[in-house]
Write a protein that binds this DNA or RNA. Sequence first.
DNA 1: TCGACCCCTAAGCGCTTGCTCAGCGTCAGA
DNA 2: TCTGACGCTGAGCAAGCGCTTAGGGGTCGA
Lengths: 207, 207
Amino acid sequence: MGTETQPSEQPWADIAPDAARRLVTAAVEAFAERGYHATTTRDIAGRAGMSPAALYIHYKTKEELLYKISSVGHRLSLRILQEAAASDGSPAERLATAVRSFVSWHAERHTTARVVQYELGALGEEHYAEIVGLRREVDTVMRSIIQDGVDAGDFDVPDVPGTTLAALSLCIDVARWFNPEGRRGPEDVGELYADLVLRMVGGAGKP
Amino acid sequence: MGTETQPSEQPWADIAPDAARRLVTAAVEAFAERGYHATTTRDIAGRAGMSPAALYIHYKTKEELLYKISSVGHRLSLRILQEAAASDGSPAERLATAVRSFVSWHAERHTTARVVQYELGALGEEHYAEIVGLRREVDTVMRSIIQDGVDAGDFDVPDVPGTTLAALSLCIDVARWFNPEGRRGPEDVGELYADLVLRMVGGAGKP
DNA sequence: TCGACCCCTAAGCGCTTGCTCAGCGTCAGA
DNA sequence: TCTGACGCTGAGCAAGCGCTTAGGGGTCGA
């Protein structure tokens, strides 16, 4: 709940000209609310307090804005997962940390995460291919934690790729349903989900 | 794998004039592929082998098509869940059956499910409210199975609403990532997920 | 004081969108 | 043979889309 979010978790802090940053945050809001295709460039510019033409001074196309959001968002969430995976502790502890932080990022930044996770299909071909590469890395990190637990004899997992898929799917889908007005805060969901994923790998009571 | 799908699981079998049915199936394909907003009425009509104007003889608007798909799809998936919940057996067996059939429907009919689960936001206000009601029923059914297991002492679940949310989220997200070309068939995913959800409720080895 | 530079806007272009409408062919019943 | 209902098409309308362009108005160093 009261955990202060690090600046690194605020995705757009270091985007260069002020106007460009205002445009990204406006686009994130709009894309998350209505979806990429239902959002107009006029709407984005309006939310950023500018005329429609101003958008094209900072970004070549509307798709480039989406790409920027998707790229920065994917890299940030991947880094959060990697840091958790590289931390000290048993596989169970690392898995719990990974799920907790990955999930609470998806909840805390659920507007960004929604765009990141659900608007991939609107990217151009090359941009899409690049993002798919990042997603594969996410999968690799999660699978390696689970595999470590299996190798150490701490987890009981008959199907490692399948369980990895399910665990990531669970985390990612938080972006879809999370409601900041709801009873559960980001940290609460992270805690709940860390427990559930530990149960899935059969390593709940392990050191 | 070889399990024959009942006609009831083929959502559009009983839509009245042939042309109207061709239009729904064309719309499902198009919406699932590109999303509602990125799909044009010309595209839908084209896939159904008709001129753009023909669409409006059978459906008042493009949104009405989406509503039809969403309504039929939600009712069907709800019924599948309800039937599993009403079956004989221990809570663990009923939960496994529910997850297995709910998940394999989402995989088997993943194009329909994708529209059902991810295009809600494009519905008009009244239609949206109606669909939200159906979704609440889905939640109620799943929660009651889990609660039964807790009451019977078979499950160990500290947070019933939270676990219900997670279990449904897991099932629903299958529609997003499922790939019919992949190694896992719908029945395989159903089996895997039934096991994982049983682990989540701590009732894996129970009668 | 001046010109160079950067941001920005007003206006609008070409195109696509959801949707309409007059009319055409087909076919059952009289 | 005529008639009316039905299912459909070709053509097209108004509105809105992504994006462009010409030019205005600040803020600099010189």
